[in-house]
C-alpha cells in the first residue's frame, strides 16, 4: 500500500470511528461557516482594500487620517 493511501485510510478510519468528535466536527463546520462566510464576507470587509485599489492610495488615505486627527 502506498504511503499516501495509508495516510488517507488513517484519516478515513479515524473520522469514521469518531463518537464525541462527530458532534465537535459539526460545531467546527458551523462555526467556520459563520465566521468566514457570514461574518467575514458580510460584516468584516477589509476597510482599506474595499475602498482603495492600490497600496499607494491606502497609504495616502491613512496618512491623511493620521494628520487630520491630531
Amino acid at each position: 500500500m502506498s504511503f499516501l493511501k495509508k495516510i488517507i485510510l488513517f484519516y478515513y478510519d479515524g473520522f469514521r470511528s469518531m463518537t464525541v468528535g462527530k458532534k465537535l466536527w459539526i460545531i467546527i463546520l458551523i462555526k467556520l461557516f459563520i465566521l468566514f462566510i457570514i461574518l467575514k464576507l458580510l460584516f468584516f470587509p477589509d476597510f482599506l482594500k474595499s475602498r482603495f485599489s492600490s497600496e499607494r492610495e491606502r497609504g495616502d488615505y491613512v496618512r491623511e487620517q493620521l494628520i487630520l486627527r491630531k
Binding site: 461574518l39 468584516f44 470587509p45 477589509d46 476597510f47 482599506l48 482594500k49 491613512v62
Partner: peptide, 8 residues
C-alpha cells in the same frame, strides 16, 4: 477581522 475593519 476586527483589525482589518475596525482598526484599519
Amino acid at each position: 477581522f476586527e483589525f482589518g475593519t475596525n482598526w484599519s
